[in-house]
Design a binder for these strands. Structure first.
Length: 503
RNA sequence: GGGUCGUUAGCUCAGUCUGGCAGAGCAGGGGCCUUUUAAGCCCAGGGCCACAGGUUCGAAUCCUGUACGACCCA
């Protein structure tokens, strides 16, 4: 390890401790109270007119004010901050000097003493012993901050470099408490979704991440190789086909929460690996799924945030059922004035789009052009909206509408101007499914790299009989963006993908 | 993939337009201080100005390219 000047100074302090017979990295802590518990214990003692409690607290040193033979410091644990009131009177001359000379901002320490209120009124630990728990060598960019009467915190030169925050998330989390809260909300949200599904007789399952054939979504996969089997494998792009096989196996309600991988661009709403929730339910259809999703999301919002109204940027999103329903045709008509049904070939639709000033790639299929048009409508879909009835060309796993075989029973759900989920009345006719796969194969031959490959085993499963069912896939990261009011998927991923940097 | 902007001390940033000794606050080091909370005061440090090349007597600054990132567009 090559140490910087500041790191070298701190390493010397660790050595100084060792010389004084004190371990800079002792094995154990003897904490009796979290900072929140210590404060609560003091307030309870005051209320009961009892003696102030003795505590041992532990945490990271986040501020220090050296007054000579007296010093103030704040430590922070995962519950809160607490002031240490450290005097040579209590510690004794030698211990006080050692503490002063060896403790830096960022160190983990443990302090024992009696709870007191200082002259300015702050509840503190009147420290009798202070022990190093873990010496920090690299200085953390711990900002100075001031809290006003309303509790609002003003930060001075906070650690804010976005790239460094993502690359060294541990440092970001260590110094930016509000970042820690993002991932607490994310965790509570997933817990709530899981609880809702568990309480509605859904079985949580785990299906393969390494797959011999990828499928279930329109995306390019990551490819890997199994050395011993001498076989190419793909990282899954969705769980869909494996979950629906389980309905053949007589489970009626299944779900999985896990990671999907798509070999595509990185953006504020795309990461190469992302978390997905998919569930499938037998004996229901697209419209049953809509109601299920409404109930599940309303519950998740309430359980996570205590409200169905969610602040997202300048908007307030209301997750109270029912959600708005609009056909894809109407949504696109409203946003672009184009009725794509009137332009049933890629050439005619492309011409119409270009005439009206929209971008239309020359090599795009008709289905992709419709998808491009939907992109025009997307930013305005702020309140929860089920956009339903999709062209069959871009929906090879969904069942056709009984009265219109050019369209399928499918919806995409939009909230906050983002696509959040995708659902079908699932196709369970093996002969029709085979035709759809073959059509996808032709699309692939024509250059559509996102077309879905034939999956013989999936067809075999369906040949045994698959009950009618509906299914739904939800982008967990995007829902987390909504729940935490963040605009970039990177803000809700602990370790977002970044390009590798030299050194 | 294209465009715009950014990269200067451990952190947050000036300095770049108009080329001329590398700056501030915080953090760190030495000293003073027994009720502070962005504590205060005194002293002395700390730099591959992202990287490579070019122009120039002289480049953090101008030009070209590269890397990484942010935002916008596709």
């Amino acid at each position: 390890m090559e140490l910087s000047e500041l790191e070298r100074q701190r390493a010397e302090k660790a050595a100084r401790l060792q010389e004084a017979g004190v371990a800079p990295y002792p094995h154990r802590s003897h904490r009796t109270h979290t900072t929140v518990q210590a404060i609560a214990a003091y307030e309870a003692a005051v209320a009961a007119d009892a003696a102030a409690p003795r505590v041992t607290v532990a945490g990271r040193v986040v501020s220090m004010r050296d007054m000579g033979r007296l010093m103030f410091a704040h430590i922070e644990d995962s519950s809160d901050r607490l002031q240490l009131f450290i005097r040579s009177n209590e510690l004794g001359e030698d211990a006080f000097t050692l503490a002063k000379r060896t403790i830096d901002l960022g160190d983990f320490v443990e302090a024992s003493g009696t709870m007191v209120r200082t002259r300015t009124g702050e509840i503190s630990v009147q420290t009798e012993t202070v022990v190093m728990l873990a010496k920090a060598i690299t200085p953390l960019p711990i900002p100075k901050e001031v809290e006003d009467e309303s509790g609002a915190i003003t930060r001075f030169s906070a650690f804010a470099d976005v790239e460094e925050r993502y690359r060294q998330r541990y440092a970001d989390l260590a110094v930016n408490r509000e970042v820690r809260d993002i991932f607490r909300v994310r965790s509570r949200m997933i817990t709530a979704l899981r609880a809702w599904l568990d309480n509605h007789d859904y079985l949580e399952v785990e299906t393969p991440i390494l797959q011999p054939i990828y499928g279930g979504a329109a995306a390019r996969p990551f490819t890997t190789y199994h050395n011993q089997l001498k076989q190419n494998l793909y990282l899954r792009i969705s769980f869909e086909l494996y979950l629906k096989r389980l309905l053949v196996g007589m489970y009626e309600r299944v779900y999985e929460i896990g990671r999907d991988f798509r070999n595509e661009g990185v953006s504020y709403k795309h990461n190469p690996e992302f978390t997905q929730l998919e569930f499938y339910c037998a004996y229901t259809d697209l419209f049953g799924i809509m109601e299920t999703v409404e109930q599940m999301l309303a519950y998740a919002a309430e359980a996570t945030l205590g409200s169905r109204q969610i602040t997202f940027g300048e908007n307030t999103v209301d997750l109270t059922p029912p959600f708005r329903r609009v056909t894809l045709r109407d949504a696109i008509r409203q946003a672009t004035d184009i009725d794509y049904v009137a332009f049933p070939t890629s050439d005619s639709l492309r011409q119409e789009m270009r005439q009206r000033g929209f971008n239309a790639a020359s090599d795009a299929s008709w289905g992709h052009l419709v998808d491009t048009l939907l992109g025009e409508a997307e930013p305005d879909l702020i309140q929860p909206t089920f956009v339903h009835d999709y062209p069959v060309e871009i929906s090879p796993l969904a069942k056709q509408k009984p009265d219109d075989p050019t369209h399928v029973e499918r919806f995409e759900m939009f909230i906050g101007g983002m696509e959040m989920g995708n659902a079908f009345t699932e196709l369970n006719d093996p002969f029709e499914q085979e035709q759809r796969f073959m059509q996808q194969g032709r699309a692939y031959e024509a250059g559509d790299e996102e077309a879905q490959p034939m999956d013989e085993d999936y067809l075999q499963a369906m040949m045994f009989g698959m009950p009618p069912n509906g299914g739904f896939g939800l982008g967990i990261d995007r829902l987390a963006m909504l729940f935490t009011d963040h605009r970039s998927i990177r803000d809700v991923l602990l370790y977002p993908h970044l390009r590798q940097r030299d050194q």
